[in-house]
């Protein structure tokens, strides 16, 4: 009568364990994703029932001058964020990858902005970048230069917000780079030094190539993160001046929750999804053809 111990479970057992996750995934992710595809073909103000309007939302989007600007802003933000985060994250990681007294303090300090609320970060930077009383502009004036309007100038606002986002998040990528750096065999670096390589050469010839898998991991996640820029834009510029710092994510918020044009907002979200999808495919492609050959 006794069964072997590995037979105690039946086919249903694994399902029992995954049911909570599956339900959560369906209710909070998959069903909304599919529904919003349908909604993107409707006119819906949340009050009445959605009205099917065919491709009208997409037609309106594609014929809108502002929308093209918003798409370009989204990519500009991403570019600054991805390049900035990787350069700053890596630079910080190299800087603190040393064993000196008190380094733990610096590691924590650099990580602190990551866990600070984006709204708080936005308010503080708004103060620091303020045109008349801001710390940054006062410093610039002190050395005799004319400071710009960081947030009030249509050409600068988006770059400023993206840079603050880089400042906020670099610590996070620093930790990942640090893990990668500490995984590099010190013997290799030492033998390079013995062979006469200077610090510059060892970094670009040894450290960086050996860090490639980490670098591509960071590249992937910075690209994904670069589209999540709502909070800081809300706290710092509200998309302004005149759409100068408006991005797809912020425009989804405006249309869905300020104008209550849920159908139109869903269409924007789907265009964003297409861009993110293309980026992901591009990423996989690079990883397949570049990273593996370096392993």
């Amino acid at each position: 009568m006794t069964q072997p111990p590995y037979r105690w479970h039946s086919k249903i057992t694994p399902w029992v364990f995954i049911i909570p996750t599956v339900i959560g995934l369906l209710v909070f992710r998959l069903i909304p994703i599919v529904s919003s595809l349908y909604l993107s073909f409707t006119d819906w103000n949340l009050l009445s029932s959605p009205v099917f309007i065919n491709m009208e939302n997409y037609q309106e989007l594609l014929s809108s001058e502002d929308f093209l600007g918003i798409v370009l802003n989204t990519f500009q933000f991403s570019l600054i964020y991805v390049v900035g985060s990787i350069v700053c994250g890596l630079a910080l990681a190299v800087l603190i990858n040393v064993r000196i007294k008190g380094i733990a303090f610096f590691r924590s300090a650099i990580y602190l902005p990551v866990v600070t609320s984006a709204v708080a970060v936005g308010i503080i930077w708004n103060w620091m970048l303020g045109p008349t009383y801001g710390l940054v502009n006062n410093l610039i004036e002190a050395i005799g230069l004319t400071p710009p309007y960081w947030l009030g100038d249509t050409r600068l606002a988006l770059n400023t917000v993206a840079s603050v986002q880089v400042w906020k998040m670099s610590g996070y990528y620093m930790i990942i780079f640090l893990a990668g750096l500490q995984g590099i065999n010190r013997d290799t670096l030492e033998s390079a030094r013995v062979d006469g390589a200077n610090a510059f050469q060892s970094f670009f010839r040894i450290t960086l190539p050996m860090l490639m898998p980490t670098l591509f991991f960071v590249l992937t996640i910075t690209i994904i993160d670069s589209f999540k820029n709502f909070e800081l834009i809300y706290a710092m510029t509200k998309g302004g001046p005149q759409n100068a710092s408006n991005t797809l994510v912020y425009d989804v918020y405006l249309n869905a929750f300020v104008y209550y044009r849920v159908g139109y907002a869903s269409a924007i979200a789907y265009i964003l999804l297409i861009f993110v999808g293309l980026m992901t495919i591009f990423n996989f492609y690079i990883k397949k053809h570049l990273v593996q050959s370096l392993d």
């Binding site: 998309g239 001046p241 005149q242 759409n243 405006l254 104008y259």
Partner: peptide, 12 residues
């Protein structure tokens, strides 16, 4: 949330 746009944005 749309304070930088519309008539507000025009006057600004």
């Amino acid at each position: 949330g749309s304070e930088s746009l519309g008539l507000n944005g025009t006057i600004d």
